[in-house]
Amino acid sequence: MINMTNTILVIILLSVLLSLASNRLSALVRIMALQGVMVSLTPLFLEHHSNLGSGGLIFFQIMILIKGLLIPGLLFMAVRKVSITREIEPLIGYHASLFFGLVCILLSGYITSRLQVSLPAGHELLLITAITTLAAGLFLMMGRTKAITQVIGYLMLENGIYLIGTALTKQSHTLYVVEFGVLLDLLVGVMIMGIILHNINHAFDDVDTTLMRRLKD
């Protein structure tokens, strides 16, 4: 089982690095779909989650559907609609971003080793992945100009937080509320962002957030 978990986690890490290096939006969305599926799968392979009831299984299926299909689908439609295919001028270049991702992994490892928390065996990598994903999400939001990329960054941030949640907490006292919350949040959040995205494109003829600097002092 542990090998399985680790495999998934490595895939997630890879997807993070890829997303940092990718300049094509459609590729980015595909990566996010993959990452979403993997993130939703992670809890299933963890030891203390193994005794899932049937309700739990259904829940995770829905989760995979949403994270792996619905949201990427929405994003895909958005990308099509705004008809831009690539991030042209990132605020931080791709090589630098990739380098940042690597540094992030290193730092996450350091932090994980420093945190005085008794993690179950094999969870170190989970925590490393989680923190890296979270940091990379924030990084994408800061380092890219296109509004869609920022939405994707936000998704990654949520993925990271979700992973941290699964890594650190016992399932017993949350009663799926956490997952439910994250899902709802993601869903509605992305839908709203999608609507705004659409309107931004409509109003500004672009989804470049550098154009949105009217409101300042």
Partner: peptide, 20 residues
């Protein structure tokens, strides 16, 4: 539009951190 975008994005990030 700009205001809403900033509102939703920044607040969502903040709220995500609160979840953490």
């Amino acid at each position: 539009l700009e205001a809403t975008w900033k509102y939703v994005l920044i607040c969502s990030v903040g709220i995500a951190l609160a979840l953490l």
